[in-house]
Design a protein around this nucleic acid. Structure first.
Lengths: 308, 308
DNA sequence: AGAAGACATAGGCACAGCTTATGCACTCCC
DNA sequence: GGGAGTGCATAAGCTGTGCCTATGTCTTCT
């Protein structure tokens, strides 16, 4: 029943050593790497030594002219870079949450956009102008529309099919909903994928009423053949809790495909198609009609449209 | 000229608080989350409080029956999960490097596979059998072939087009090479993509002779029209250093597309096509001919073939 | 041969974070 | 409505990690 990977080993809880490793790869010496992190050379030296002890292999080739990475060092650095980048996304998101209402760009975003797309956009935005301060507010699509209409937000991102009047909209990405079950679930080993009727008749692990994802599923079933969805098997508040319940064998769920990519890769969840049911929706940027976007909000839209 | 994002803020260097947040989302109480991490409830409480202070927003809704996440908490948890997953890949890789020569499966992998594909496979492998111990050795494709032929490795992964005799091979993924330049580079704003002849005549930032990527590019140009590549502009040892040099405006480079996806998304690098040149190569699993794979090595191949 | 650059070692200090013990508030149930 | 139980906060004290400054050693370039 435990879905979560057990706690991270001590050696990867603190990313400082890995950041140093990356800096060494880039700058060519431990001393310079230390400097770029505002710490003394012995401190960096000690952390890197500790890192090598953790890995049990030499990661650095210390020469009189500087330090380079060994093959193993390259490998660890590459893995570390992915981690540091993820942490960087996290930091960008947090910074945006933190700068409540005092930012130069005030963004309102629905959960799916805020979770999976926005951090990268924020980083790209900062790259284009480091001075930009972003304030992020997350809510459901209706709340986002309200914020933008009220002028509380400069630009919004919604996941609902309809766009409130008074707003201009532009699709910036598509989102795919995925039906997932535990590998042990009967559906996972069945020959044929379930039909829409079967899905509608099945109780799912789902989020509370009002969630965009749940609403999109209900709408898709209704439009398909006027199907009403069964009562949820279990209503939980977080995506994490849904995944835990599904993995634990409670029952199937429908989630954004982006939310389950890791679990699918790891094989802890199995994704199923649903016959003849379109589970795709569009994610849109919205802004007040008649007032063209300008400044950082326009830049943000451009970045979002550029895709990734 | 600095390509690297500045150091991570203090608040995201240590992932413990975020792991706790995820555990709270999954388990529903701070106390249980604390337990799952082998720490006392007050310690977890303090860390979570610190996290909320860092974000500047309430992340938790503490009720008498337990604790749930707020909307902001959900958001942070989602970002945190991506980070923790990346750290988990890192940990899996390190564990494999660490278990030198005593593992149940001995894997030899070329850099591209080891960097970008193997960690997920290792996690999936551990999910299918938690007892499996993996020993990883990384080298270039020739070294991998030698290890497998010598019986030093049970299974290998290579990126070279030819497969040594005596080995069975099976493609597990494709790798695409990407020509990248800095946004400020003339090619980035040019109308037409460069032609193969132009690329061959241009000095690139590249890795040392012997690198699989460099070799693949030289081969592609030679096969295209018998073109010989120009002398490198700069030879550096690490992918990180190449990216730094390109971003710094030194010149163009050709790298695995997987290596630059983040930079492309952030707009710090620009990818260009090359007219009429196929820069695709296949990544293959190899094992001794005549002796079918068995045990964990076979499981690993199945996971790799399943893709992601 | 001398000088400079780069990393290692040593000693000492400061602070962050954990544990145990206890207190407080809200629910649930009889 | 009152009592019990669950869950989180607070308090106090201690341990250990990690940093800095100062200095040593080795290599390489001139």
């Amino acid at each position: 029943m435990p879905m979560s990977s057990r706690p991270l080993p001590r050696s990867v809880r603190d990313l400082t050593g890995y950041e140093l490793l990356l800096s060494v790869a880039e700058l060519g010496s431990i001393g310079q790497a230390a400097g770029s992190h505002g710490m003394s050379q012995p401190a960096a030296s000690a952390r890197l030594r500790q890192l090598e002890a953790d890995v049990g292999t030499a990661l650095l080739e210390r020469r009189a002219r500087g330090t380079r990475l060994t093959t193993a060092g390259e490998l660890v650095a590459s893995w570390a870079q992915a981690t540091v980048e993820a942490a960087s996304d996290l930091a960008a998101g947090i910074a945006a949450l933190r700068a409540d209402r005092h930012g130069h760009v005030r963004i309102a975003a629905s959960l799916t956009v805020a979770e999976y797309l926005l951090p990268r956009w924020l980083i790209a935005l900062r790259a284009s102008d480091p001075e930009t301060v972003v304030a992020l507010d997350s809510g459901n699509s209706a709340e986002v529309a309200t914020s933008v209409l009220a002028g509380t937000a400069d630009i919004g991102f919604v996941e609902s099919p309809e766009v409130a009047s008074g707003l201009s909209a532009r699709e910036v990405a598509r989102d795919e909903l995925a039906l997932v079950v535990a590998p042990s679930h009967p559906w996972a080993s069945r020959r044929r994928e379930p039909r829409a009727e079967e899905l509608a008749a099945t109780s799912l692990v789902s989020r509370e009423r009002g969630s965009g994802t749940r609403w999109a599923l209900e709408r898709a079933l209704r439009e398909h053949a006027g199907l009403e969805t069964a009562e949820p098997l279990l209503e939980v508040s977080s995506t994490t809790a849904i995944k835990a319940a599904v993995t634990g064998g409670i029952g199937p769920a429908v989630l954004s495909a982006r939310a389950v990519s890791t679990e699918l890769a790891a094989g802890t969840l199995v994704r199923l198609g649903v016959t003849e049911l379109d589970l795709t929706r569009s994610l849109r940027a919205v802004w007040p009609e008649g007032t063209p976007l300008r400044g950082p909000a326009r830049d943000l839209l451009a970045i979002a449209l550029r895709g990734e």
